[in-house]
Each structure stands twice: as C-alpha cells, then as structure tokens.
C-alpha cells in the first residue's frame, strides 16, 4: 500500500550541520526526553572520565599525596584527625572516593569501548561472510556462534580470562590484565553482532543493486564492503550501544569477582569489590557511590540504545 508511505523531502541543500539537525533522527531525539536526558548523563560521565586528571581533586594513584590518616572519612565531613573534607568521603587508605570513581570510570569505559569495538569488528566480518558467502561457511560460523550462545557470556569471558592469565608470565599479569579483560569481553560478545549482520546481509544480498554490482563484475569482497556493509550498519549501531552498557557491566562483574582489573588500577567493579568489605562496618559510601555511578552509566547508555533502536526502525516511525 504505497499510499501510506508518504515520503517527505527537503528541497533546500543546506550545510552538513543544518542537514543533520534537520534529519529525522535528530528530530526524534529532540522529541524524546528520555533520550536527551540519557545522552546528557552519558556525556557528563564520559567527559569527566576522559578529563579525570583535570576534574579530579586528587590523584588517587600518587602515593605521595596519600595520607593514611585520612582513611574512612565520611562524605562531606571533616576528618577527625586531619580536618580535611572530602566531597564523597575516602576509602580505607585515605583515597578520595570521588577521584577514584573518576579514574575507575576511565578504565571501565576504556574496557567497555574497546571490547565492543573488538566484538563489533569480529561480528561484522563473520556476519558478512556468513550472510554473503552462505553454504558451509555460513553453517560453520553460525554453529560456532550457537555453541558459544549456550554458555552465559560471563562464563565465556571468565574462561578466556583464565586461559590468558595462565599463559602470561606472572610479572606482566597486572599490566596485561586490562587487555585480557578487553579480549575476554570482546570475544564473548561477537555473536549477536554476527547474527544481526548475517540476517541483514541475507536481505541486502538478494536486492537488485547487489545483482547490478555483480553484473558489472564487482568482486565479492568489494560488494561486501562497499555495497552491503553501509546498508547493514544501522542495526550494528543499535547493538553496539546496548552492548556497551552490557560490556561495562560485564567488566564490573569480572572485576568484582576478582578476575578483572587489578587493585592497582581499579575500575568501577574493583571499587565496588573493595567497598563491599566495608558495607556492614558503617563505611557505606565506599560501596554506594561507585555502584551508583555504574548504575547511572549503564542505565543511561541502555536507554539511549533503546531510543536508537526505535528511531532507526522504519516500521515504528
């Protein structure tokens, strides 16, 4: 029923920014308060993490600036011994909780972004191959994906983490921990990218523009990269956003279980693990503030992903 598909067209040819501002996606964004608020939260958290050295009042990893006497200072109150006041209090070693959160978020976000990037690259490559080449290549890739899906992602990540830890020399373990974490989470998450890309590729492959490209002698590789890839990116973007939230949680989970980021370079998960030891002894802030930050970050990214999925779905528009 083509009468329903009323296409709208802009007749002016304004600049790039004006066009982006005028696009349906930007319009939908402006009209969705949840998306605007989530984006603002994500933006503030990401920026303050990136610029942590400028924003944070202390450097929690500089032993020279640490004073053990400041340990267990409650938030907003002066320390009984030194008289110093900390916005969100201090932990057992006298580190400013606010600063450790900022630095911890840096690691969490770095691990999250890198892991999603890794999963995305692997997933898109295998998804394109499976969808375009088909046959046994498709069966092979998708069976591996199916097998991996039967295990919980966190279990897969722990397995990869364990293997990697076993083969790295002990003296490099702490340095390598972050990279191993990225590898573990990235490898445990490629399946959904691959599935979605494969499905979209199957649809695009049968469309006439791909036939036209084959007809003029484009090589399969060129067809996959130049023709199909740009047309399957929308769902990839949605999944990447939601995966980012999941990857940050996964990183926190691993670190909480003690198999992730080392205490010398604590992520949000490590901070929560450290904090939970003090929860029932009255120093609740050491746990609560990192946990709340993690929750806010993951929730905001997730809501943003939800909005993106709806906004990019032509059937819901």
């Amino acid at each position: 029923m083509s009468d329903h598909q009323v296409e709208l067209q802009t007749r002016r040819t304004p600049g790039r920014f004006a066009r982006a501002w005028d696009s349906d996606l930007a319009y939908s964004f402006r009209r969705t308060p949840v998306a605007v608020v989530s984006a603002a939260v994500v933006l503030i958290l990401v920026l303050s993490a990136v610029f942590a050295p400028l924003v944070a009042p202390y450097d929690p990893f500089d032993p020279a600036s640490l004073n053990l006497m400041n340990g267990f200072t409650p938030p907003g109150q002066p320390n009984a011994l030194t008289g110093e006041t900390f916005f969100l209090g201090t932990d057992d070693q006298g580190r400013d909780v606010f600063s450790t959160i900022l630095y911890g978020m840096r690691i969490s976000l770095f691990v999250g972004f890198s892991a999603v990037l890794l999963a995305m690259v692997i997933g898109v490559v295998f998804g394109l191959l499976a969808g375009y080449v088909g046959g046994w290549v498709d069966s092979f890739i998708m069976r591996i994906a199916d097998i991996q899906l039967t295990f919980p992602a966190i279990l897969v990540a722990m397995l990869i983490f364990g293997i990697a830890k076993g083969i790295t020399p002990p003296e490099y373990r702490d340095q390598m921990a972050i990279w191993v974490l990225i590898l573990a989470i990235g490898l445990s998450d490629w399946v959904q990218f691959a599935r979605v890309v494969r499905g979209a590729t199957l649809v695009e492959r049968s469309r006439d523009y791909v036939l036209a490209a084959r007809l003029v002698g484009q090589r399969p590789f060129a067809i996959m990269i130049r023709h199909i890839l740009p047309n399957v990116l929308n769902p990839v973007l949605v999944i990447a956003t939601i995966s980012l939230a999941l990857a940050i949680i996964a990183e926190a989970t691993l670190s909480f279980l003690g198999v992730g980021a080392p205490p010398t370079r604590p992520s949000l998960g490590t901070l929560i693990r450290i904090g939970q030891g003090f929860m029932f002894s009255g120093e609740w802030w050491i746990l609560l503030f990192p946990a709340a930050t993690l929750l806010a970050l993951a929730l905001a990214i997730n809501l943003l992903g939800d909005w993106l999925r709806d906004a990019l779905n032509p059937r819901l528009r």
Partner: peptide
Amino acid sequence: LQMIFQDPFASLNPRWKVRRIIAEPVAVR
C-alpha cells in the same frame, strides 16, 4: 551486456550518490 531491473527502489544502493551509482560499471574496470 547490461541489465535493467524491475524494482527501481531496490536496484539502487541507497547509501551511494547517483554519480557513483551510474559510474560503477566503468569505475570497476
């Protein structure tokens, strides 16, 4: 030998500019 397809909405890559679409058979060589 060249071909014209039935559905003009599916036979042009939506992400390509018309210039690139038309020149593809020549550019590929």
